[in-house]
Amino acid sequence: MTPTLTISRLTKRFGDVEALKAVSLTLEAGRRAALLGHNGAGKSTMMKIILGLIPYDGGEVSVCGSSPGSSSARAAVAYLPENVAFHPALTGEEQLRYYLSLRGESPRQAMELLSRVGLAHAARRRIGTYSKGMRQRVGLAQTLIGKPRLLVLDEPTSGLDPVSRRDFYDLLDGLAAEGTAILLSSHALTEVEARTDRILILSGGALVAEGMLADLRARAALPVALLVRPAPGRAPALVSAFPEASAGGDGLLRLSCAQAEKLPLLARISALGGEVADLDVIPPSLEDIYSHFSRRDGQ
């Protein structure tokens, strides 16, 4: 199956600044990729190239089998920016009906699309009365017009409350299950950690790491943290058994070890039996991994 998005050794310069340095990646149908990077890392430049908004200097880009910006690519791609803007005098329904007409789709789909993003109750209110989160959901409804094969989302949950964010990712899960490829740029690392298939980390215009979260954890080889709660009255015994542990005011013992040492350390803890009341194993977070690869590139 041909990938929905293919980028091969993509380069882009702005004067003396090399914004993208031989970036290569693929994104298959139904896959969700999180594009991470600091401000100025090249994320916006890459998305603009994918959308056909700016040219590139070297390499190759294929969007749904076509050149970015071509009529066939535009018909298959939808984009949601961080800050959407709509005419404040139009209602949500009127705005969607207008965009549906522009895309050659039936305006009657407006209410269905607004229902999918949780805005059916406000469909006939003027957008000028909407909160930022509601306007963001209008933008998301707009991206669903025509069942795009590729969604490009730039900080899409900006302004959404926690419940709306959960509903948003549930909607993305459904779209991916239907075969839509999703490229999502976000600074909210805790959000994307569990709701994307692949992680792409840009730093200084270069793709410094990419893969599934488990693969990046293995490559980063960051330490694993273990939190041990002693049984009542058994804290001194545990401190004696684990002199390398640090004790906090919450009564927990904190241990750290390399990935390869995790199972032996768990075996040592389990051997203590009733002296241990509880145990939590905390792997490196996506934020830890992102910091590791970005810092490595800077060095």
Rank of each mutant, 00 (worst) to 15 (best):
T2C: 13
P3H: 07
T6F: 09
I7L: 13
I7M: 11
S8G: 13
R9A: 15
K12T: 05
K12G: 02
R13C: 11
R13Q: 13
R13M: 10
G15F: 10
V17S: 14
V23W: 03
A29T: 07
R31S: 11
A33C: 13
A34H: 01
L35S: 04
L35E: 02
G37R: 01
N39W: 14
N39T: 14
G40M: 06
A41L: 06
K43P: 01
S44K: 09
T45H: 04
I49K: 02
I50G: 00
L53E: 14
G59T: 07
G59E: 09
G59S: 12
V63S: 02
G69Y: 03
A78H: 00
A78K: 00
N83D: 14
H87A: 15
L90N: 09
T91H: 05
E93Y: 04
R97D: 03
Y99Q: 08
L100P: 03
S101E: 15
R103E: 14
G104T: 10
P107Q: 11
R108V: 14
R108Y: 13
A110W: 00
M111N: 10
E112A: 15
L113K: 01
L114D: 03
L119F: 10
A120G: 13
A122M: 11
R125L: 13
R125D: 11
R125A: 12
R126I: 10
R126D: 09
I127C: 08
Y130R: 05
G133V: 05
M134P: 01
Q136C: 05
L140Y: 00
T143L: 02
G146R: 04
P148D: 07
V152C: 06
L153T: 01
D154P: 05
D154R: 07
D154E: 12
P156R: 03
T157S: 01
S158D: 10
L160R: 01
R165Q: 00
D167T: 08
L171F: 09
L172Q: 02
D173T: 14
D173N: 15
G174W: 06
E178R: 14
T180W: 03
T180V: 13
A181N: 03
I182G: 03
I182E: 00
L184N: 03
S185G: 13
S186E: 03
H187Q: 11
T190C: 15
E193M: 11
D197Y: 07
D197V: 08
D197L: 07
D197P: 06
I199D: 02
S203D: 09
S203Q: 08
V208G: 01
V208L: 06
E210N: 11
A214S: 15
L216S: 04
A221K: 11
A221H: 11
P223N: 10
L226H: 02
L227D: 05
A231W: 04
G233I: 12
R234D: 09
P236K: 07
P243N: 13
A245V: 08
S246A: 15
A247G: 12
G249C: 12
L252G: 08
L255T: 01
L255Q: 00
S256P: 08
C257K: 02
L263A: 12
L263M: 15
L265R: 00
A267W: 06
E275K: 05
D278V: 08
D280A: 15
P284N: 11
L286N: 00
L286W: 02
E287F: 06
D288P: 04
Y290W: 12
F293G: 01
D297I: 06
G298W: 11
